[in-house]
Design a protein around this nucleic acid. Structure first.
Lengths: 332, 332
DNA sequence: CCAGTATTTGCAACCGGTTGCAATTCGCGT
DNA sequence: ACGCGAATTGCAACCGGTTGCAAATACTGG
């Protein structure tokens, strides 16, 4: 049923190589030949089989897009930007959902079976083992939203989560909160670990300020709400740095339900600045994560990596401004 | 670098066919042989090249997942469920973002180049031409969230948007609203057209009720907010059926900002029941779209279609209950 | 018009697998 | 130990392309 190279060759009365060459740019074909072949191809509705050609060229133009955060609203933008950016450059995203997968091996095997040219791991919670497993399998890999390190083992694009933690702490201190807390995401998420570490390190310089911390079970509305309900019962702090925006919104809903008011009684600062954070009914003060830059940069890095797979691992880190909205009181 | 069938065959001292057979189930291999081959394969770290095999078998297990709604929060669940569901069945989603694509031909060509086994179009706004273009190219296709028809031209899974429009109208009437309106999504979206038609047809039976309508430019927060601001200035109705949840939330924010209150002054009912609708700070009364059923059913239908591509087109329609929350006053 | 070089074309082998067919080996009954 | 059918194995062709190489053709200047 599908029309192949051979069909076109026969119809045009030329060799198969000739047809192949008119469809690969940079090959030597005369204009006469090209016209003949294109005519035949058009008449037959031929388009070359990308997979078959990948066999000899060794490139599929397939890029594995691996994540485990499918339910976090931040990923709307991430997926939109990745899919658009990749296909604008002639690459195709092959999606892998890791939601309940712990072993990198399976994904590595699967993506190698489909001989992807490269893999983008998009997750702030996966340990770097995941990305390294791909690297070790010889597949170019970029870890977007990955853990920052001064001597990265794989290519990383994202933010410095420790710095973000420090920034959150500074922001709360500036606003004269004296009893503050970290409400983290799951403790195994590298982003939570780093944000926590940064938060604490900044506060080490302020011994007068009371600091506490706890962790929610997931980066989700329900987990944030539940943890905040618990904290409210036990006696809440004056302000919280929440692990991310969804968590913050869960916390906000708990606060409202318990008869407290934000920011009058309790302040909240989130992280991500996802679309919903600016919705007036939410209006969350938060640290902006430059999604677009991160995605664009990841794609560019991937492109460079496809050209030169042995590039030395590199960390591309973008800075995060605080976005002032309505869940923190004004600076002193 | 990558290890192939031949390498394994040589190491195990057997023919290439033998190796191939131990990796395709249903083939005749003795236990001795299988063990030998598996040992060699393990030692070499071999895993078969899915794309190469697709050349002869004619199946890639690749499924094109095509959409243009990447920024609508409802798609978090849609993508999560699709990717999980497909990969649980050994299929791989190849993502296509149609956001600024109007011509089906490009996508058809591209997906044929990658010889996908089937295509799922997931969109409530695309006209059915899109799905039909795939069908015409001989690719099994399911249109999830597509337009309902009693004699569908392609396989459709979703809701009956006209019925949803009628349900919305009934719900508003029951609550004794006498001046009501439809605030639709983009007028070219089939879902908006159908919801509008249903809404109006139900109200035809209530000549006493005042009805008006207008359309936002997109299914988005900003479009909803902007259109509602305009309506508020011109003199609003008592209650609105909004095209979908994001639109509703934009409208809510406009209402709050203009000093009105919901549901005291103006009632809102949305459609979709996306995750955020239940967030307490939003608490949107809405019509529930059974995402999980739709996705699961689409996948099952696709599986059936892969077995029997000539199956007669079928529409699978699921019903939508109203979810009572806080943006509509109580029934009379 | 011719030699000499530069382009264009086709042949055939190959990419990494699968599969029909015939040859071989196996298991079993006697 | 022998004969038989069933199960296993290898050969070789094929899937839809690409590409090195050599043959054929097209240009160039003298």
């Amino acid at each position: 049923m599908p029309v192949t190279l051979k069909d076109v060759a026969e119809r045009a009365g030329v060799s198969r190589s000739a047809v192949s060459r008119t469809f690969t740019d940079g090959a030597s074909v005369s204009t006469t030949m090209r016209r003949k072949v294109e005519k035949a191809a058009r008449e037959l509705g031929y388009s070359p089989n990308a997979l078959a050609s990948s066999l000899t060229t060794g490139r599929t133009k397939l890029i594995g897009l691996v994540s485990n955060n499918f339910l976090n609203p931040i990923f709307l933008q991430v997926f939109d930007l990745f899919t658009r950016g990749l296909q604008d450059r002639g690459l195709r995203p092959l999606l892998v959902n890791l939601s309940n997968e712990t072993d990198p091996e399976n994904s590595v095997r699967m993506l190698r079976q489909y001989s992807v040219d490269g893999v983008v791991v998009a997750s702030s919670t996966l340990p770097s083992d995941f990305a390294m497993a791909f690297r070790d399998a010889g597949v170019p890999v970029v870890h977007a939203f990955g853990r920052y390190s001064s001597s990265p083992k794989v290519h990383v694009v994202g933010i410095d989560n420790r710095e973000a933690g420090r920034l959150a702490a500074r922001t709360l201190v500036e606003r004269d909160y004296r009893d503050i807390a970290f409400l983290g995401g799951p403790e195994i998420a590298t982003s939570t670990q780093d944000r926590f570490a940064g938060f604490m390190s900044e506060l080490a310089a302020h011994p007068k300020i009371r600091v506490s911390h706890s962790f929610a079970l997931a980066y989700s509305f329900d987990a944030g709400r539940q943890e905040m309900l618990r904290l409210l019962k036990a006696g809440p702090a004056q302000a919280y740095f929440c692990g991310d925006d969804v968590l913050s919104i869960g916390a906000l809903s708990a606060i409202a339900d318990s008869g407290y008011s934000c920011p009058a009684d309790i302040g909240i600062i989130g992280l991500n600045d996802m679309e919903m954070a600016r919705w007036e009914n939410i209006n969350l003060t938060t640290i902006h994560q430059p999604i677009e830059q991160i995605v664009t940069s990841s794609i560019e890095l991937m492109l460079a990596l496809l050209k030169d797979p042995d590039r030395h691992p590199e960390a591309r880190i973008y800075s995060c401004p605080v976005v002032e909205r309505g869940t923190l009181r004004a600076p002193a």
